[in-house]
Nucleic acid binder design. Structure first.
Lengths: 341, 341
DNA sequence: TACGTTAGAGTTATCGATAACTCAATCAAC
DNA sequence: GTTGATTGAGTTATCGATAACTCTAACGTA
């Protein structure tokens, strides 16, 4: 591996001179500069980021830790983060916690060990608190996105979950639905709580009764939707519509209903948050509160870099709530006329 | 930031002893070990990967560079790579070249500077040759996936593009199609060439004439499909079926046809490679040669690590071709009866 | 002419960890 | 009671780069 010493020897200068040429610092004569440049080119020199990072105490790397890299929402977040990081002169280290506390811990340890300059993280849940506190103790700047964690007061970028739920339920109520279930994420996750909150507010606002038997919790990854579907269908008064906690849950429900021969939206309407991209391709197209995923990543990185570069005062965390917009799809219709299935 | 020296001072031992406790090497009495462990815990010590990497001359990081992170095919590749890397004790640095030679170069420089232990890369095209040669000169092990590059003889994992094309064309021919167009990727990309080759072979095998006016090139990212659709529809004998070079092109074509009121598959059949995941959701479901994307990533990492750890002899590059399987969807049907549109 | 400036370098110490070597104490065996 | 092995540490040099300091011509100026 070529080092500045190899360059220095070849060019018959000191290592420091080579370093100065690389970084364009100090005074170097044009002649020397050219000589060094030529040798660097000849030997295909690439600086060693570890050595540099060790002395500079920074790496130029930011890390993005999401909970599900196969979810198009997070893929788009990643793109936004990557573009923003690149344009601000940072590299991006991408990680995937799979909604798993242990994996999250492993990743955070790895990230701290790498001495990244900052961390953009979607916490797996409220239990992420202790891991975030570890990050705080290490003094590494971080920004939470998509979810917040009670007890952690930091920069964050979230969506308007309450507002999104209200829009979705209002829309369903407008179609005539009066029995609407919620299949949400675990209440250990902030978005699940807020979406539940919006759900309840909207029910009240529409004079619809709240029935706790119509509220199911799952994790955000599409498992167990069979059981959830079964449970909802066998209820004494089965719902005519469902608010799914996120796109993956909506998909899981849709699949379960299809297997049972339940038509969506004919017999059951489904609404949810976010989409799968490629809207033209999907049928039924979910009626959904679409969040600006790309902006989640881009804004998050921006806040993070502001924090790193000390632009934002260290005392006041920046909270940023991004709006969502209701997109009407073909997964919703008027309630089925006969109450039972 | 806490270092081993801080630990050493607190525990009243030398830094070397701390290092030994961390790495479980050398002889340490149980008493000392415990004492050091306790201090590490108290101070929340996390080793500095840069310092360690500098002396060990390795980072434990592998890099995956793909050409389009929003393409579900590569997302799944990334998951396979990540799982494999993790289970082999490596971390994964993910990058995205956007099919762009300049971005690719920037990323490779960054990666080399980071001194990753190995690189898994989907080359943007044949021009990637010079960038791969840079990697060779630096002695960093690498494996190409999905595409190969003429003139570069290295470990790689590719799909059976020729076989895939043949299966798809055979299927179309079996439905009765006799005028089949190819809208492929740029011939600068190996998969585009192989898919074209399979297309020609299959035409010949089915006694179908080859008409170069029915072969269009695009880049793999869904742009310009309007123009391609226009050109195909206005041809004197418009095709009744199209082999799209990849999933993104198929999607672009579908959208263009829909805008023009051309029904798929009623008036035009489309076949392609790979899918978009979430098969249940998509309509029309493309008839496609599905490649084992997860395996591309997993196998690639495996080859890479074998190479890094010297398990594979340095003289013989491992070539690995993964089979694809024909999945019949709803984007194909018998040719429209009236020749014109 | 003598002295302060400045351009254009070179030297040395340092970042945090580990490899390789050294060293003192303990213990066993003859 | 020496000698030799073994245990449980400590010392020093090193990885590749940069910060901070030093040094030396050449030059300008009174």
């Amino acid at each position: 591996m070529v080092t500045i010493y190899d360059i220095a020897k070849q060019a018959d200068v000191s290592a420091m001179t080579v370093s100065r040429v690389i970084n364009n610092t100090g005074r170097i004569s044009e002649k020397t500069r050219e000589k060094v440049r030529k040798v660097m080119e000849e030997l295909n020199y690439v600086p060693n980021a570890m050595a540099r990072g060790l002395v500079l105490q920074k790496t130029g790397i930011l890390s993005l830790l999401v909970t599900d890299i196969t979810n198009p929402f997070y893929t788009t977040v990643a793109r936004g983060a990557e573009d923003a990081a690149r344009s601000l002169g940072f590299k991006l280290l991408l990680g995937n916690s799979d909604e798993d506390a242990n994996k999250e811990k492993e990743y955070i340890d790895m990230i701290l060990s790498t001495r990244v300059d900052g961390i953009l993280i979607t916490p797996a849940g409220d239990s992420s608190k202790e891991r975030l506190e570890t990050i705080v103790r290490h003094g590494t700047p971080f920004v939470t996105i998509d979810r917040d964690v009670p007890g952690i007061d930091c920069d964050n970028v979230v969506g308007d979950s309450i507002g999104g739920s209200r829009k979705l339920i209002d829309y369903l109520a407008g179609l005539g639905h009066r029995v609407i279930a919620l299949v949400g994420g675990s209440f250990d996750v902030s978005t699940a709580r807020y979406r539940y909150e919006g759900y309840r507010e909207a029910l009240a606002a529409n004079d619809l009764p709240y029935d706790e038997r119509l509220v199911l919790q799952a994790n955000y990854r599409m498992q167990d939707m069979e059981a959830a579907a079964e449970q909802l269908l066998s209820a004494s008064s089965a719902p005519t519509a469902i608010l799914a906690g996120n796109n993956m849950l909506a998909l899981g429900l849709l699949q379960s209903f299809r297997r049972r021969g339940i038509d969506v939206p004919g017999q059951m309407s489904i609404v949810t948050f976010d989409d799968f991209g490629h809207r033209d391709l999907i049928d039924p197209l979910f009626t959904t509160a679409v969040q600006p995923a790309y902006q989640f990543g881009a804004r998050g990185i921006q806040l993070l870099v502001d924090r790193i570069e000390g632009k934002s005062s260290s005392s006041t965390p920046q909270q940023c709530m991004l709006p969502n917009s209701l997109v009407i799809g073909s997964s919703t219709g008027v309630p089925r006329s006969n109450g039972t299935l």
